[in-house]
Structure formats: structure tokens, C-alpha cells
């Protein structure tokens, strides 16, 4: 598994599709289809959707990775602002951040995208 992180609108998806020569048909946007596509885009949004439906994002992520161990996961970094007053927002940021830490620990490679540029944080080559 490869984890791609970065702030919002940094060009993460464009970089990933270009770098791995994939197209938009290779991209999943939810945990279910992440089991069968090359790229899982917008993990932070999928976490939000699943939390609001009462689901467990880390269990869902684990299931997807069991089916698809070579998945490329793309997630926004969302923890760089003032802690929100709204508990739902707090829970979402917490869940997203913790899940990214877990994924980064498991990942073969972690890449951070900044202004469209990649920096390998773990697992070079």
C-alpha cells in the first residue's frame, strides 16, 4: 500500500494518475470500491461519510486493504487548523489523522504532495 498525503488542492490525484499512468476509471471514492480499484481518492471524505452513517472507518479501511493490498490511498491533511467547536468535526479530524498514522506505519511508501511536487517521507525508491 502507498499513502499519498498533502493539504487540500495540492495536486495529489493529478500527480498519482500521472506518476502511475492511471486514468479516472482506476479511482475509487468510497471504502467499498477501494477493494477493487488501483487508487482510493479522498479518504478524509470517505471517513466523514462513514462516520455520519455510524460506521467504523478503520475497520472499513482494513477490509479494503485485505482485498487490495497494493492500494494507493490519497488523503488530505486536515489537522492544521484551530480545533473545531463542533464535536462532529473534531471526531472526523481525529479519525482521519489517526487513520493516516496507522496507514503510514503499514505503508510501503508515504509520499507528501506540496504545490504539485512529491516528497517521499518513507520508503524511498
Amino acid at each position: 500500500m502507498i499513502l499519498m498525503i498533502g493539504g487540500a488542492a495540492q495536486g495529489k490525484l493529478a500527480y498519482t494518475l500521472g506518476h502511475y499512468q492511471l486514468t479516472s476509471s482506476d479511482v475509487a471514492y468510497d471504502f467499498e470500491s477501494a477493494g477493487s480499484k488501483a487508487v482510493f481518492y479522498g479518504l478524509h471524505q470517505a471517513v466523514r461519510a462513514l462516520l455520519s452513517a455510524g460506521g467504523d472507518p478503520s475497520a472499513a479501511m482494513e477490509r479494503a486493504l485485505l482485498q487490495n493490498p497494493g492500494l494507493i490511498v490519497i488523503c488530505d491533511e486536515v489537522g492544521g487548523g484551530v480545533v473545531p467547536i463542533d464535536p462532529v468535526q473534531r471526531e472526523w479530524r481525529e479519525a482521519t489523522g489517526r487513520l493516516c498514522c496507522t496507514l503510514a506505519a503499514q505503508a510501503d511508501q508515504v509520499v507528501r504532495i506540496f504545490c504539485g511536487l512529491p516528497m517521499v517521507l518513507k520508503g524511498g525508491g
Binding site: 488542492a9 495540492q10 495536486g11
Partner: peptide, 29 residues
Amino acid sequence: ELFLDGMEYDRETLDYLMCLSALNRAVAA
């Protein structure tokens, strides 16, 4: 750097952020 706060902004602010990030990426390229 305005892109790490995980906030959901109104349409107009979001459009401004998209404008700035597009410029950042174009200049970086």
C-alpha cells in the same frame, strides 16, 4: 500555506482557495 486546516468553507472562499492553489502549483511547475 492555507490548505491544511480541514475546514469547509463557503463557495466563494473555496473558489478563492482553488485560485490560489492553482497559482501555487503553476508557479511551482
